[in-house]
């Protein structure tokens, strides 16, 4: 158990290290002189050289990398090229929107995907199953940004043209000031972000459930005289919890990518839109910060999932 945890932690460290090396190389070695970017077009060579020395860019690469790593570990992500604010503060400002979006979407897709999958699997080939499979196909095929734009057009703009407001047109409202307004503003972003994952979840649930319902232990449960509800929701669902948990780990990585697009569509001031803006501004410290933070998040989420997995499956304990 401890050994398992140790190996997972080692892997997590490897992922983070690889990621940090990737962004470091990308930004400090790749074309485009950071010092020049920082000082701007009009600066003189001397000014640029001064900045280069300040940043330590004139030292050997491995030394620079170690300094970079050391600073990052201490939580110092440097300053934005654009407005000289600490990257950590910029990120912290954007966290609430992204966290609201992510958590809500995860709850939504788990809450939609699993029931649809079970409904589909309970009566394979039936009308309900075909509806479920239709949902899966459409959900998997719908590009997030198309869905977002379509939702805005049909659920915000058209009603407003007809003279009433069904949903707001975007923007993030603080949860603390008014939870209802917050939720109302988040409904469309949540659905947009959750649809694809809900479909993936439904497909996985359906497949696993079909397989599990063919297992001998389900027959044993029926032979015991359990009601069909108990057979499905106790014995069947318990059997598919492990693959579902594993999938959750993979999906958490996807939620961040989806969040970028969703935030962009709905004008949410979150981490994703921060990163996109940073790319436009060539503001590299922000991109580095967001990528590393996302990596850390994914790695932690994966460890949690691994632990859950151990908890759920007595055979690997």
């Amino acid at each position: 158990m401890i050994r398992f945890l140790a190996s997972r932690l080692a892997f997590a460290a490897a992922v983070l290290l690889a990621l940090s090396a990737f962004v470091f190389l990308l930004f400090f070695v790749a074309p485009g002189d950071p010092a020049r970017l920082l000082t701007g077009e009009k600066a003189t060579e001397a000014q640029v050289a001064q900045v280069r020395a300040n940043l330590g860019l004139d030292r050997p690469i491995h030394e620079q990398y170690l300094t970079f790593l050391g600073r990052t570990m201490k939580g110092d992500l440097g300053f934005s090229y654009r407005n000289q604010q600490p990257v950590t503060r910029l990120i912290a400002n954007r966290m609430p929107a992204t966290i609201s979006l992510g958590i809500g979407a995860i709850l939504l897709w788990v809450g939609i995907g699993i029931p649809i999958g079970i409904m589909s699997a309970r009566h394979p080939g039936s009308l309900r199953d075909r509806l479920g499979q239709g949902f899966i196909l459409v959900g998997i095929s719908f590009p997030t940004f198309v869905l977002g734009m379509a939702s805005l057009y049909f659920l915000y703009f058209l009603p407003r043209q007809l003279g009433f407001t069904l949903f707001p047109g975007g923007g993030y409202k603080s949860f603390l000031s008014n939870p209802w307004i917050w939720a109302w503003h988040m409904v469309l972003p949540w659905t947009t972000l959750a649809l694809a994952s809900a479909a993936i979840y439904a497909r996985l649930t359906r497949g696993e459930m079909l397989a599990v319902m063919g297992e001998d232990y389900i027959r044993t449960a029926r032979a015991k005289g359990l009601s069909e509800r108990k057979v499905v929701y106790k014995h069947g669902l318990r059997g598919i919890l492990t693959p579902l948990t594993t999938q959750l780990g993979a999906d958490i990585a996807a939620v961040l990518g989806g969040a970028i697009v969703t935030e962009q569509v709905y004008g949410l001031q979150g981490l994703g839109s921060l990163a996109v803006q940073a790319v436009g501004n060539q503001d590299r410290p922000i991109i580095i910060g967001v990528v590393l933070l996302a990596g850390l998040f994914i790695v932690v989420a994966n460890i949690v999932v691994d632990l859950l997995y151990v908890l759920l499956d007595p055979r690997v304990r």
Partner: peptide
Amino acid sequence: AMISQDPLSCLHPFY
């Protein structure tokens, strides 16, 4: 009551 062939697959692995 019923018992069947493969006693491993017939018992729920997680209970």
